[in-house]
Structures are given as C-alpha cells and as structure tokens.
Amino acid sequence: MTPVAVSLTSLLSFSGLACLCLSMDRHGRTLFHGRPSRRRDRAFRVAGWLFIALAFAAAVITADWNFGPVQWLGSLTGAALIVVALMSYRPAWIRPAAIAALPLAMATAFFV
C-alpha cells in the first residue's frame, strides 16, 4: 500500500460518491436551484458507479486481492465522510471538488 495508490482510490471514490450524491433529488435541487432532469440524474448515477468501480479496480491492481478490497472500503469510507461534510457545510463546493479530483486521479495513475 503506497500513498499514491491510496490517493488514487480515494480520489476516484470521492468523485463517484459525489456524483451519486448529485443524482439524488434533494441534493440536486439544492445545488442546481431547481429540479434536475432525469437525463442528468441518470448521467450522474452512471458516472458515480463507474468511478466507484474504477476505484475498486485500481485498489485491486495496486494492492492485489489480499489487501485491495480492504483499501477500497477504507477509501470509500474516507470519501463518504468528505462528501457528507461538504454537503453539510459547503454544498456549493462539491461540484468543483469532484471535478478537480478527476484530473488529480489521472495524474496519480501515472505514478502507480
């Protein structure tokens, strides 16, 4: 388990959970100032599950099957805490943070 591998899985998990959060009706209304369309909800939901699956794949590739799923669950837990904190205190920051996490994840993927 290297810090680069943990940061990769954490960034992908954060982006995935943020997308799933934005696909929910209540949070979508808060952040988009109105009812989001079904197409946008579905796109956020698909993107969220895709990023979570990519985080699992990255964890298994970097830490093998012995410790990869444990690392993935830990990164999901940490990312969930950050998403909840952002939605509670600074909801407007979650979209830019999720968007900024993706290029950072791609940059850390080159160092794994």
Rank of each mutant, 00 (worst) to 15 (best):
L76I: 14
P36F: 03
R39W: 01
T108K: 06
A107S: 10
A53M: 00
S23Q: 00
G34T: 05
W65F: 14
S37T: 13
F44Q: 03
S88P: 02
G48Y: 03
L54Q: 04
L31C: 14
F110G: 00
P36I: 07
F56R: 11
S88C: 05
A43S: 09
F111W: 10
L104E: 04
L50F: 07
A105L: 07
P3V: 05
R40W: 12
A105W: 10
V84Y: 07
W65P: 07
A105P: 07
G16I: 08
V46M: 05
M87L: 15
L11C: 02
D25F: 05
G16A: 06
T9C: 14
A107L: 13
F14H: 08
A59L: 06
N66P: 02
A97D: 05
R90A: 11
T30Y: 03
G48F: 00
S75P: 05
L12V: 01
A55F: 05
W93C: 00
L17W: 08
R42A: 04
L12C: 04
A98T: 15
S13I: 10
C19M: 10
L12D: 06
G34Y: 04
L81R: 12
N66I: 10
R95E: 15
A47R: 07
G34K: 06
V46W: 00
V60H: 07
G16Y: 05
P103N: 12
A63R: 15
M1K: 06
D64R: 15
S75K: 09
L73H: 13
T62C: 15
G48E: 03
T108E: 04
S10Q: 07
L102E: 02
R40C: 01
F51V: 01
A57Q: 00
I94H: 15
L102M: 14
V84N: 04
A85E: 11
G28F: 14
A98D: 09
C19I: 03
L8A: 03
R40N: 03
R40S: 04
P3L: 09
A79Q: 12
I52M: 06
F111I: 10
R39T: 08
S37C: 02
W93Y: 07
S10L: 07
T9S: 15
R90N: 07
G78V: 11
M24V: 03
A53Y: 00
G34D: 04
R42I: 03
R42W: 01
A57K: 00
G74S: 09
R38N: 01
G68N: 08
L22K: 12
M87Q: 10
W72I: 04
V84A: 14
A79M: 10
A97M: 13
F110L: 14
G68I: 02
S23Y: 00
A47M: 07
R42Y: 01
S7Q: 10
L22P: 13
V70Y: 11
A59E: 09
L11V: 05
G16D: 04
P91K: 06
S23F: 00
L31I: 15
A98I: 14
I99G: 15
R29S: 05
L73Q: 12
L73F: 14
A100M: 11
L73I: 13
A107G: 09
L8Y: 03
L50D: 01
T77H: 09
A85W: 14
L86G: 02
I82S: 14
A43V: 12
F14M: 06
S88V: 06
L31V: 15
Q71Y: 08
V46F: 02
S88D: 05
A5Q: 00
